[in-house]
């Protein structure tokens, strides 16, 4: 049996990979993927927590998080499509009309 703390370490790693992705990737689709990775790290924690405490609550919460993640990415892709139609690029370095 794998001890539950291992899951927490794995999810922390996943979260850090996602965060790193947000910081260094420039393509908006990669940013969306990185956010998805961070949300799934939270899901892993919730499910591991449910197993640690012998409850089902955490697994239920993971479903809520999945629904939220799906809704979020739907809006995100819609905005990305609009951005691509306007500027022809999904590179974050090309998005810089607003600054100062």
């Amino acid at each position: 049996m794998i001890p539950a703390s291992h899951y927490l370490i794995l999810s922390a790693l996943l979260f850090c990979i996602g965060l790193l992705g947000i910081l260094i990737r420039r393509n908006i689709l990669s940013l969306l993927l990185s956010i998805e990775l961070m949300l799934n790290a939270a899901n892993l924690n919730l499910v591991a927590g449910a197993a640690m405490h012998g409850q089902l609550d955490g697994q239920l919460m993971a479903f809520f998080v999945m629904v939220i993640a799906a809704a979020e990415v739907t809006i995100g892709l819609a905005i990305a499509v609009l951005l691509f139609r306007r500027g022809g690029s999904l590179d974050t370095h090309d998005i810089q009309q607003l600054k100062g």
Binding site: F15, A42, N45, L46, G49, G58, M61, V65, I68
Partner: peptide, 10 residues
């Protein structure tokens, strides 16, 4: 949500 998941796990 990651913070919340840590709180739940603890």
């Amino acid at each position: 949500i990651f913070g919340i998941s840590l709180i739940y796990a603890a």
